[in-house]
Design a protein around this nucleic acid. Structure first.
Lengths: 236, 236
DNA sequence: ACCATAATATGGTCTGACCATACTCGGAAA
DNA sequence: TTTCCGAGTATGGTCAGACCATATTATGGT
């Protein structure tokens, strides 16, 4: 038998847990501030260095953002833009090579099909509203950038139809990548009329509760928005 | 007009970049070691604290793992087990409430159904092998813990059928959560005979290339493995 | 040859200090 | 009175040096 090394927890991990707990219990949200480093260190009876290591972890996790020289109110700010951190994470995990377009699109297709087929009565209305709002803004968009901004919001709304936060989180995690791909696609396509028609159709079908038809519409839409995959597998 | 504050890079970020560069240039892989903290600090002419903050970031990203007291050969080890970091990320992003069982199971179901329906001829053989190996080990498992270890490996194999690394990465990200849930489920169920029969059936159907039937089998399996959801939505 | 002990190097932590920045507030100038 | 400028002050960022517990390696005695 082999002895397991007891895995003594390092103090910054304890600090991390306490901060997380505090965020949860106090219901802190984006924009709220944590106590200053010295204050935290004092309250938790640890050194400032340990507090800083914990804050560094929270920062790479995309939870807080620190800024020097802020006034007496002070401390790390809670943020809520985890996408980039998650994207970095994925990039690092998958090795040097970044995700292929196919992989991202397939995943998108999977999530959106699932979402429209499993729209949850309790969550769908809010998602439908978000989709409708995104549609309006898309119409008024002047630049491809702007159009894609709202396009992403629309598809995020689709992902939220089922009320499954994990799906929405995954979609948000892919936001950056999707955005980059999409701007290129829209600029290549030039006109957005067909895409908008697809969007409206999807929205209508979901609103009418016709999941299967919506799923087909989603499939067609993604096929139209992104080149039909020339062929030839990327890897040997 | 407002001036952007030039965002002076903090020294630990510079350290981070240098370490990443070094890893890439020297072609370091899992198991290789970085120089010790003091040595790194000396070479880069920064304090040990800055080096440690950088290492903490790399640790959060799942790139390295530090361990105290190792001999003169030294430093942080390169690893390739990003799952826990990703899991933490997701947990934090989704707010104070952790994911519900339903959300995790639904996502699993979505991924596995998609995977068996879109098995990629180039990637499926390797995944099938992994599934078969996991099956054998599951039979020999003595404890629920052990059984679940290989069960998770089996389902990870399922997720890899399509060759989409994003799906596999997501499944890996959920590994910890699934593992915890599954141990409880297996202990509750007591006997694993039915589950093993499901596993074998899924493997056979995929091997035979019958995606639709495999998808149905996956659905049945997950329904059997996890209680049929009493009812009553968790949130108001 | 073998095993227990000492030496050594490492990560983990703490203390106390200094810097540059950003806010606050009081007093001088309008 | 109002406006604006400057000192004061608290913050995050960084550093140097120290101590501890642990893990590896040498050492030395049996």
């Amino acid at each position: 038998m082999e002895w397991q090394p007891v895995r003594k927890t390092r103090t910054f991990e304890e600090v991390l847990a306490q901060i997380e707990r505090r965020i949860a219990e106090d219901g802190l949200t984006a924009g709220d501030r944590l106590p200053g480093e010295r204050q935290l260190a004092g309250q938790l009876h640890v050194s400032r260095a340990s507090v800083r290591e914990a804050l560094r972890v929270l920062e790479t996790l995309g939870v807080v953002s620190s800024q020097a020289g802020r006034g007496p109110d002070a401390g790390a700010v809670l943020i809520s833009r985890p996408e980039s951190a998650l994207a970095d994470l994925l990039r690092l995990h998958l090795g040097t090579a970044s995700l292929s377009l196919d992989e991202v699109i397939d995943t998108r297709l999977m999530i959106e099909q699932w979402a429209v087929l499993h729209a949850h009565p309790g969550h769908a209305p809010a998602a439908l509203d978000a989709m409708a709002a995104a549609l309006e803004r898309m119409e008024a968009a002047a630049t491809p950038q702007e159009f894609v901004d709202h396009d992403v919001a629309f598809h995020l709304g689709v992902a939220m139809l089922s009320g499954n936060r994990l799906l929405a989180a995954t979609m948000r995690a892919l936001r950056q990548t999707i955005h980059a791909f999409s701007v290129a696609a829209v600029e290549r396509a030039g006109q957005t009329g067909l895409l908008m028609a697809d969007h409206r159709r999807i929205h209508e079908l979901v609103a009418a509760g016709d999941g299967p038809a919506a799923a087909r519409a989603v499939t067609e839409h993604l096929a139209r928005a992104y080149p039909p995959a020339p062929d030839g597998p990327p890897e040997a």
